[in-house]
Design a protein around this nucleic acid. Sequence first.
DNA 1: TCTGGGGTCCTAGGACCC
DNA 2: TCTGGGGTCCTAGGACCC
Length: 419
Amino acid sequence: MYALVDCNNFYASCERVFNPSLENKPVVVLSNNDGCVIARSNEAKALDIPMGAPAFQYEKLFERNGVYVFSSNYALYGDMSRRVMNILSRFTPDIEIYSIDEAFLLLEGFEEHFDLYSYGREMIKAVRSKTGIPISIGIAPTKALAKVANKIAKKFAARTGGVYIIDAPEKTRKALLWTKIGDVWGIGRQYEKRLLSLNIKNAQQFVELHDEYVRKEFSVVGLRLKRDLSGLTTLSLEATPLKKNIAVTRAFESMYSNYAELKERVSTYAIKIGEKLRRQGSNCSLLQVFLLTNSFRQDLKQYRASISVYTPYPTNSSITLVKTALTGLDMIYKEGYQYKKAGIIAMKLTPSTQKQFKLFSQENPKHEQLMKVVDQLNFKENGKVKFGGQDLGRTWKIKQEKLSNKFSTRLNELIIIKI
DNA sequence: TCTGGGGTCCTAGGACCC
DNA sequence: TCTGGGGTCCTAGGACCC
């Protein structure tokens, strides 16, 4: 059996842990630059605030309904996620961390020794008491069915106690009939449209389609999903693998038209890419750089461009990455446009332990040491070391007007309790 | 005025090889 | 009129996920 454990309204719950007065109140968390709603408490969902809602369009509604609004605090959410996953790992040796707030647990043979429902309830209690985060658990013979069970556990929390188990054919059938086709894991908007036009409205009808047909229309991905949903184990647990691509992409707080500003931002993104590569222990050989104008402003001239540039050798040195990224920027930059977003994606990643010797070009061996020192200083001093190409005065800043403290990772931002 | 960021996988088609 | 038959590798684009 597989369990899918999912944190309820994760980002909103993280904010609540350190601010219990938010309990039972509507809470939303915004994306970078305080742009869109990316997380909502149940109370906020009940106010019909959709996922992705532009914050400026909902300001009035927030005010009228006393909605508590937060900028996203990834330092906090990332750390809370790590804590939750650590606790879950105590319940089984086989765990796949699927996203920041979800994990699959393999409970093979556990049903012979434990009552799975009580086991799930214990997980909920442990995570709640040690981190403050509420979770829901779906348990079933396959991953896709565990996803379905999880939805049921959450939807009927009062009745299920947050744990739902699919362990018999009648239960499977009932659960699949209940699941709307668009809510099935792996069925997105496009597939949903196509299936609805064929009058396939729920997961049970999807499972009854012919294999060949599913394969033809939805590729092998769809077929695997169908088999897994029907109870045949097709998707297995995967050790959380190294990333194959690493990206840093950001919208600017305003539009930039001059090259110097873009150059500074792209340099900063390249440096961030370097940090992420070093954290994973990877080098990259190919950088893709892209540039976009503001597509919401159709009254302005539009331009989008992207280019791939090879690094001279596999590297994670911020210095080399900046040089490479700027080469790319030079090639795609055009004067006369107002740019709103830029990004860099590092591709063709290899382990940094694996040294490749090139005939004519090699990295200056001092880079490795230098980067190590920079990373250590930046960890201790919270990002104080910068490179010459960066804006030292930091005239730009992402908009984060409602940022909470880094309660769990910074000593000087600890929660203060007055007695 | 204001509209996120970061990933994965698959397929089709082109370039190239023998 | 008629123009082979395999392969591999790469990329762009499109679907999906959170």
